[in-house]
């Protein structure tokens, strides 16, 4: 690990006025649970770290007339314990609890969870210069790829590791970004970008932009949601496949439904095709398998990760059925 300095800003303005062209020199840090690991492993070696935790007022969960606002520096543990989140947004509550370990949830933040870097073992190997690190090849595509992407990947086969992201996207969350230009609010689904757009990044953030807040619209009457995570071991494991489902049920059918998968694509993967097939129809296991099957027609498994297709079918069916 190389030495670095720590900057302790007092305001967001100080952060967004950092020179974007010197992006290799600094990194923003929230909980640090991922960033410090990257620095220790020498995946990145910034000259200084900008500790966002010294800025007051970025940690909160507030209800207002439009829904709920969550400060980016709210810890995952605080999110998991919040009674409003638990009753109105079960998918988010469950995702928070399914994430990492109690120690990591105490340190990790909501914003940091969304901005964490991929866990691809080639990316995390300091000896390997893959595309994501400016190299010319993806080692995973022909290497050991049991945990890699089967959907949406072409030049880089990472999967997005966040548990909160699929839940938040299914809940139609928006994200507010402080930027040198002007603060902007966009749909969280538009926040994440595929490697094909820019292989070095997983989202639209510029180095001197800060994910400041999340907003989730008011839960509709009768709205239900759930997050189902399939991981290999009991805890401290990233999703092999996860599904966040939100919908309003009427009789045996969904009036509307949102399905977002985790662990299968370089970004949280919205299953629009499956949603359209399920919406308005009587939900049966058969229908769900069929919907998953349609959505998986675009899946491109690698040598070791074909089993994720089967897991997607099961996890999706179980998550949807649990809302009936």
């Amino acid at each position: 690990m190389k030495d670095f300095k720590i900057a302790e800003p007092q305001t967001l303005e100080q952060v967004i006025s950092l020179p974007a062209e010197e992006k290799d020199k600094f990194c923003l840090m929230a909980g640090g649970t991922d960033l410090l690991g990257e620095i220790k492993d020498e995946i990145i070696s910034p000259e200084f770290i900008v500790d966002l935790k010294t800025i007051p007022g970025l940690s909160y969960i507030q209800k207002d007339k439009d829904g709920v606002k969550i400060g980016a520096l709210t810890t995952v543990a605080e999110l998991a314990e919040n009674p409003l989140i638990k009753t109105d947004y079960p998918a988010l509550h469950q995702a928070a609890l399914a994430l990492a370990t109690p120690q990591l949830r105490n340190m990790g933040t909501v914003g940091g969870n969304l901005c964490q870097r991929p866990r691809c073992w080639y990316y995390r190997d300091p000896n390997m210069k893959c595309r994501k690190k400016g190299g010319s090849q993806c080692f995973a595509s022909n290497g050991r790829n049991k945990y890699h992407a089967i959907l949406g990947a072409r030049i880089c086969y990472i999967v997005h590791p966040s548990d909160l992201a699929p839940a938040l996207i299914s809940l139609d969350a928006e994200v507010t970004i402080s930027s040198p230009k002007k603060e902007k609010t966009i749909s969280l689904a538009d926040f994440f970008t595929l490697p094909q757009v820019n292989v070095r990044k997983e989202n639209i953030l510029e180095p001197n932009e800060v994910l400041r807040e999340l907003r989730i619209p008011q839960a509709k009457n009768g709205e239900k949601s759930t997050y189902l995570k399939f991981k290999e071991r009991g805890t401290w494991d990233f999703a092999v496949v996860s599904a966040a489902v939100k919908g309003t049920v009427s009789g045996r059918a969904f009036k509307d439904i949102r399905i977002t998968l985790g662990g299968v694509a370089p970004i949280p993967w919205r299953l629009k095709i499956a949603e359209d097939l399920i919406k308005g129809k009587k939900v049966t296991e058969n229908l769900l398998r069929q919907a998953a099957g349609e959505a998986l027609k675009e899946a491109r498994p690698l040598k070791d990760n074909g089993y994720k297709k089967e897991l997607i079918e099961v996890v999706l069916s179980r998550a949807v059925l649990s809302l009936m």
């Binding site: 073992w121 080639y122 190997d125 000896n127 390997m128 080692f139 022909n142 290497g143 050991r144």
Partner: peptide
Amino acid sequence: VVDETTGNVVN
């Protein structure tokens, strides 16, 4: 887990 292309242990 060992990678056949690079010869490295990846985990």
